[in-house]
Design a binder for these strands. Structure first.
Length: 905
RNA sequence: GCCCGGAUGGCGGAAUUGGUAGACGCGCUGGUCUCAAACACCAGUGGCAGCAAUGCCGUGCCGGUUCGAUCCCGGCUCCGGGCACCA
């Protein structure tokens, strides 16, 4: 011992065995290879149609915010990059592009405050994002970079808008068609040109109309239904939205509801996302039923999913906005109804989504006739019925609908139970039948027959009842089977400067025309003031030079001053990546046929409904018009989970900025006051000051470590907390890898140790399977296990090292390139063939068979693989350790071949 | 309220979907190196009892099916996400 110490002291450098050891200098390595890739354009994608194996892998492109990247971005980008690099090594022609969804409010807000043109801000932000992304070593083909704010790009966004305008939906063939092919009914033609134009406009997928829409006074912008949260606030700014009537561009997405719904089935998407889209589309089936109004010629048509409960309909409700309200209100009730309707319109402005939601309503004084039994039922007005869904009127069945029940109870309206419920609880059954409790489940009809009208439901169950009554209604011509959707027209304009201008002119005679394709793009004018008007005018209304136009005949017109919402650019960007520089066409159809559809699309779940539904809608329209070759754009979708970060709050729940907190003995305190705070995990946000910037991580540990760490954190889809303490693990793994392989002395030329060989092939198999399944955390763990095995041996054959470097290369590409070079290879590793697992090395002859007694593992015994069951039993029962548990009993033995033996005593 | 997820050591998470629970990593403990520390390296590490061999307990809770349950079934609790007067 003593002499050894003396020896070591006298040779301090050799303290780390094997002489001079090169250290893992990640900054140098990463810089070197990023320069190499850039210089050699290593990841440029060629439209090589001769390779039938193409793989289009796409990230949801980011909005380049001023704050730059946070560590959530690299998570998805690293995942796609691993797959892209892996697929290249598998011989696929890979399309893996990146671009910027760069229209948006923040740049415009900044322009309002500072007068800086949004394009300037945007370009600066794009530069930052590009620099940060390049520092991560992501293998994008930068020659295909696109930017939605580039006129060369939004020219085609405008072009698609013109296509939407010139398309109608043929419900017979269920596809969109050119507006010139729209058959116009004879009576419309007879009614003249004006009527004909009106008819055609009523069929276009894009239309301009007065609509009651949500308006955010704080942002001075209209919002799509989807952008308004349940509590009536604007999802962007959190302020209250109000109802307004404004002329706006709308898209008739509901025409595609059925196709958008059915199309989901063929898609390899997370079930949850598909379910959210289904819910959003909100298909329901039922019937429209006509009710005569007593003593008047009026008819109220209602939509109901439960026509089978007609016998239980004891009143009707009109939405306050329903145009029939005026006609159906009798003079005695007029005051009360007017007051209610007025209050409701105010309420919809201020408090439409009142949480208390006590049912309110007022009687019109009129009655309707229930067609199944001729009974007179009162007609009410109540705001729990919405004008925008169904027909804006309902038949109310309080016995079998919770909302109607609540309303009827409050206003003392009759409750007639017509369905004996399928419940065992006799007391509950009694309550339901007597109308003291509501029942919306299945059961057997009672009181639901009328011999005069030839309708009998009694004795049937709900399913049979719905079918029977629907037939009866249709035969009697008082209604019709109907499919309904929650999905509404999509409000497609915003009162903003920084968006795509509509290629639209409004003429003084009230007509609208769209620009010619050859006049695209219509670019934005230069402005001094970016602020929108207080009444919802877009800032573009100030651009007088740009705004006014005169045609050849001297007719004067005004350009559309609204711009498109941010969704427009992201609705089709994946198509432009295919042929991003094409000036003649949106893209070359041959290239489109080769590259589409997107094989794998990765992004955050926050776009589950909006972006993904809109993009699918546009895609289907383009498909119907023969512009794209596939019906769906994104075959496989995967959502990466959010990365959360630690944040701190006081005992009262007040949030404390992370930079003010210090840790001591596992507890957290505010540095200045010493007050103890609690550590929580929360979304990264500026206000909590818990945003992690990837630049810092790259500087301290390197991009390869960051990539590995983000992937090692847990399953890609999981929400995970960012805890930088753990980053040492992946970093160590990389430096240990470097130490093993960069050290020439460890690399041998000859035969490989059988144990390492076996470990290698197991690793190849595991890593390959895990990349295919997007399970990067376990792939990394498999490589760590391999490294541990190899390090124990301190020697590794060159061939083995090469295979291992290849496995590592999609995850830690810089280090892999460096090691590839150090082990004597030339050029990039990016296109080297992916290693194959050789079954020969994977086959086992013996295995450690666990033996359990009564289901509890007791000991292990080495057994040959595939030993016949009887022999296994014999060997196991003969074992001393087994005898200890069995004693004198004669046990039952269950043998699961090559897996486990269970002795039952 | 409804619809989707989820709950496993001190922590992030594994587990071939009915067959050895806790891989891998962090952290922690001990050791080597160091004047010392950091780094690195080696060993250990679910809890309880025991010097130990070993035994008992253990995958949010209660119950069930099974030779055997983290996994399947029934009933809850809590957490995350989405939707919400959609007739």
């Amino acid at each position: 011992m003593i002499s050894a110490k003396v020896f070591l002291i006298s040779h301090p450098i050799s303290a780390n065995h094997s002489g001079i050891m090169k250290e893992y200098n990640f900054s140098e390595i990463e810089k070197k290879w990023q320069d190499y890739w850039e210089k050699n354009r290593t990841f440029r994608t060629h439209d090589d149609f001769s390779n039938p194996n193409k793989y289009y892998i796409l990230d949801m492109f980011p909005y380049p915010s001023g704050a730059g990247l946070h560590v959530g971005h690299p998570e998805g980008y690293t995942a796609t990059d691993i797959v892209a690099r892996y697929k290249r090594m598998k011989g696929f022609n890979v399309l893996h592009p990146m671009g910027w969804d760069a229209f948006g409010l923040p740049a415009e807000q900044y322009a309002i405050q500072t007068g800086t043109h949004p394009a300037v801000t945007t370009n600066k932000n794009c530069d930052t994002f590009r620099r940060q992304i390049k520092a991560l070593g992501l293998s994008y083909d930068w020659d295909r970079e696109i930017n939605t704010t580039d006129p060369a790009y939004f020219k085609w966004t405008q072009w698609i808008f013109i296509k939407l305008y010139n398309t109608w939906y043929d419900h017979n063939t269920n596809r969109g068609r050119d507006i010139n092919e729209l058959p116009v009914p004879l009576d419309v033609i007879k009614a003249g040109d004006e009527a004909r134009k009106k008819y055609i406009d009523s069929k276009r997928l894009a239309y301009y109309d007065d609509a009651q829409i949500w308006y955010c006074p704080s942002c001075r912008i209209v919002c799509a239904n989807e952008e308004v949260l349940t509590d009536g606030s604007h999802e962007k700014c959190g302020n209250r939205v109000v109802r307004r009537n404004l002329k706006q561009w709308m898209l008739r997405i509901p025409y595609y509801a059925e196709r958008l719904l059915n199309g989901l089935e063929q898609l390899d998407w997370p079930e949850g996302i598909k379910e959210m889209q289904r819910n959003w589309i909100g298909r329901s089936t039922g019937a429209e039923v006509d009710f005569q109004v007593d003593g008047s010629g009026e008819i109220i048509t209602v939509y109901t999913t439960r026509p089978d409960t007609l016998f239980g309909a004891t009143y009707m409700v009109l939405s306050p906005e329903n145009p029939l309200v005026g006609n159906l209100t009798n003079p005695e009730q007029a005051g009360a109804v007017e007051e209610y309707v007025r209050a409701a319109s105010l309420k919809s402005d201020l408090d439409r989504t009142d949480l208390a939601r006590e049912k309110t309503g007022v009687f019109t004084g009129s009655y309707a006739i229930n067609p199944v039994n001729n009974k007179k039922i009162p007609i009410w007005v109540a705001d729990y019925v919405l004008m925008g869904y169904g027909t804006g009127a309902i038949m109310a069945v309080p016995a079998h609908d919770e909302r109607d029940f609540e309303f009827a109870k409050k206003f003392g309206i009759e409750i007639v139970c017509i369905l004996s419920p399928a419940v065992n609880d006799m007391e509950q059954k009694r309550r339901i039948i007597s109308g003291d409790e509501c029942w919306s489940g299945d059961g057997i009809y009672i009181n639901s027959s009328d011999s005069k009208r030839g309708i009998t439901l009694d004795g049937l169950n709900v399913e049979e009842g719905i079918a029977t009554i629907t037939r009866w209604i249709e035969n009697r011509n008082i209604g019709i089977y109907r499919v309904n959707y929650k999905l509404r027209d999509w409000l497609f304009s915003r009162q903003r400067y920084w968006g795509e201008p509509f290629p639209v002119i409004h003429w003084e005679d009230g007509s609208i025309s769209l620009l010619d394709e050859k006049d695209l793009p219509l670019t934005l004018p230069e402005l001094e003031i970016y602020e929108p008007g207080a009444n919802g005018e877009s800032p573009l209304s100030n651009a007088t030079d740009w705004l006014y136009v005169t045609d050849n005949e001297g007719r004067r017109g005004k350009r559309e001053t609204n711009t498109m919402p941010q969704w427009a650019g992201s609705c089709w960007y994946y198509l432009r990546f295919i042929d991003p520089k094409n000036e003649e066409k949106i893209f070359d159809p041959e290239k489109e046929r080769y590259w589409m559809p997107v094989d794998l699309y990765i992004g955050g779940a926050e776009h589950a409904v909006l972006h993904l539904l809109y993009a699918r809608f546009w895609h289907k329209v383009l498909f119907d018009l023969g512009i794209v070759s596939t019906d769906e754009p994104f075959m496989k979708l995967f959502n990466q989970g959010m990365i959360l970060a630690f944040a701190y709050e006081t005992a009262t729940g007040a949030k404390v900025s992370s930079d003010q907190v210090t840790e001591k003995d596992g507890k957290y305190y505010i540095a200045d006051t010493g007050e103890e705070v609690r550590q929580i995990v929360a979304k990264m946000s500026k206000s909590l000051k818990n945003v992690i910037n990837p630049d810092d991580v790259v500087r301290n540990y390197g991009a390869d470590t960051l990539r590995l760490f983000e992937m090692f954190l847990g399953p890609l889809e999981a929400t995970k907390p960012w805890d930088e303490k753990g980053i040492k693990g992946p970093h160590n793994f990389l430096s240990r890898t470097y130490r093993l392989i960069a050290n020439g002395e460890n690399i041998t030329g000859g035969e490989e140790d059988p144990e390492i060989l076996k470990a290698l092939h197991k690793t190849i198999r595991k890593v390959t399977e895990d990349i295919e399944g997007l399970r990067f955390n376990t792939a990394i763990s498999a490589m760590m296990i391999f490294l541990n095995t190899a390090l124990k041996k301190e020697k590794i054959a060159r061939e083995t090292a090469s295979s291992y470097i290849k496995l590592l290369s999609p995850f830690a590409p810089h280090l892999a390139e460096e090691l590839w070079e150090l082990t004597g290879h030339e050029g990039t590793i990016a296109y080297e063939p992916w290693p194959l697992a050789d079954e020969r090395y994977l086959r086992e002859e013996v295995f450690e068979c666990p033996v359990s007694v009564n289901g509890k593992m007791r000991f292990k015994i080495e057994l040959p693989v595939d030993l016949p069951v009887e022999e296994v039993k014999e060997i196991v029962l003969a074992d001393e350790r087994a005898k200890k548990w069995i004693g004198d009993a004669s046990p039952k033995v269950i043998v699961v071949p090559n897996r486990i033996v269970n002795i039952v005593v």
